[in-house]
């Protein structure tokens, strides 16, 4: 079994797993590096380009980790959504 899982059944994807935690941890750093990297790169600082590159790599890695899981969750949920929306419409008639 690999450290990062890339194949998911819908039931397994519904659970919160290591892949979610990795995305949650990487994501704020990706934002910070992208923001600072763009600002410093526009002044042509070398460490600005380095920060921007790190931001891009983190963003790519984060998507690589989380995307298969999000796809699995989405495909399964699409099937159930109609039933949930019907339930929501029942709740709106709260006086019944």
């Amino acid at each position: 079994m690999t450290f990062i899982r890339r194949n998911w059944t819908p039931e397994e994807a519904d659970k919160w797993t290591r892949e979610d935690i990795i995305a949650i941890i990487i994501s704020p750093f990706a934002y910070a590096f992208l923001m600072i990297g763009v600002a410093l790169s526009l002044f042509l600082f070398l460490w600005g380009f380095v920060a921007l590159l790190i931001g891009i790599i983190l963003t790519g890695f984060m998507h690589w980790v989380i995307d298969p899981k999000l796809k699995a969750i989405s495909s399964e949920y699409e099937k159930k959504q109609r039933e949930y929306i019907e339930n929501l419409e029942k709740i709106i008639t709260w006086r019944e």
């Binding site: 923001m35 763009v38 600002a39 526009l42």
Partner: peptide
């Protein structure tokens, strides 16, 4: 949407 918002702020800052 937020990634673009944050990089926009960086462009403004410059």
């Amino acid at each position: 949407g937020t990634a673009v918002t944050l990089t926009r702020n960086a462009v403004w800052a410059v």
